[in-house]
Design a protein around this nucleic acid. Structure first.
Lengths: 199, 199
DNA sequence: CTCCAATGTTTACAGTGGTTATTTAGTGAA
DNA sequence: TTCACTAAATAACCACTGTAAACATTGGAG
């Protein structure tokens, strides 16, 4: 019966990725906090211990989801216009709202990083950082930003983008912001910041 | 033996606050994610069922910690100079780094807010918001910020402050930022933003 | 002073979840 | 075919949440 039919073969073939997919779905449904490894395995149609063949423990699975999502964020930023921080900012915000569960794993250490462990997310976060940095360098060369350490500009710009994004996603003080208003204010904030940084 | 000695009296007297204290300490030690109600009770020297006399469940305890911390943040912001967003920003950052566990409960919904529950943190977040808003209105009246909806300015400014703060606390892409550098860049960011918003 | 309500303790239980140890089922190479 | 290896399943252990029942202590209202 090992024809091409492949009714739930004993060996899944790509269980690792299937678990990452299921995990992202579960996180989206029940919230990142409430995600259980057993539920993820159920969703993937597999015994819960099978997951331990591919991930060291629950946190390792969560980190896997986050790392994969960093790649998707990088792609989203690269697709956006590369000559404008405003466009990058909007892409960032849209990625976060459309992948809110993964976004939390990416940027909330406590969800998947026990104390004192080597942080594999650090490496995963470098590509999106590099995309933003390249845009900043390009703007400096074009004279739209004054010269200076691009890493400093990067941190300040990222703060603005990431701050508004997390506030929209999480912060209780600003509940009723529409996606439209958020994008509008993010653009305004980026423009103001750029103007202030142009000297 | 009921003299004034009072060796762990049967009635604690202020168990609710003692549990909030213990909870903050436990969260600081083991991380907000790993906090268990039973460990908090142990730390407070009390049976775990006693906690249910003061909190509906684990999440209710966590929300209690967050709500109290919002009050402390308000006090910290009020203590800072009230005529400068830079000073407020620094106070915000310092509060977050010195109360990192509570800060996470305050601003990471998923840690203590199950889906679809009325959000008591929304009310608790209004006072610190009001402090920042008052500073902005004062700056507008002084002509240091151009007129306009103070709530819009508030959101943009808070984004900058909150963004850099959360990045310093959590984000893997910027690991090695010293407290000194963080404060320096936060001030620079706020100055740039203010300059851009001054028209 | 008496009684009551609130607060805490102990014990126990069902349900869920993380993790490990052990066993079984396929896979692929010699 | 055989044999080692990988991947998966089963069973078991322990911790934690939430709830309940039965009991102890206390303070305060009347």
């Amino acid at each position: 019966m090992s024809t091409s039919e492949a009714r739930t073969p004993y060996h899944h073939g790509d269980l690792r990725n299937a678990l990452l997919d299921a995990g992202a779905r579960v996180a989206h449904d029940v919230g990142p906090e409430a995600l259980s490894l057993r539920e993820v395995a159920r969703r993937a149609g597999v015994s819960h211990t099978a997951a331990y063949n591919h991930f060291a423990d629950r946190n390792d699975l969560l980190r896997g989801i986050a790392i994969r999502a960093f790649g998707e964020l990088t792609a989203a930023l690269e697709t956006a216009e590369t000559d404008s921080l405003e466009a990058s900012a909007i892409a960032y915000l849209q990625f976060a709202t459309s992948h809110s569960a993964e976004f939390r794993f990416m940027f909330q250490k406590s969800l998947c990083m026990p104390e004192g462990v080597f942080d594999p997310l650090e490496a995963a976060a470098q590509p999106p950082r590099a995309v933003l940095r390249k845009t900043i360098v390009r703007l400096q060369e074009a004279g739209e930003l004054k010269p200076g350490d691009p890493d400093d500009v990067l941190l300040v710009a990222w703060s603005q983008i990431h701050g508004l994004t997390t506030i929209v996603l999480e912060t209780p003080a600003f509940k009723g912001i529409s996606e439209e208003d958020a994008e509008h204010l993010l653009k305004a904030g980026m423009r103001a910041l750029m103007a202030g940084l142009a000297d």
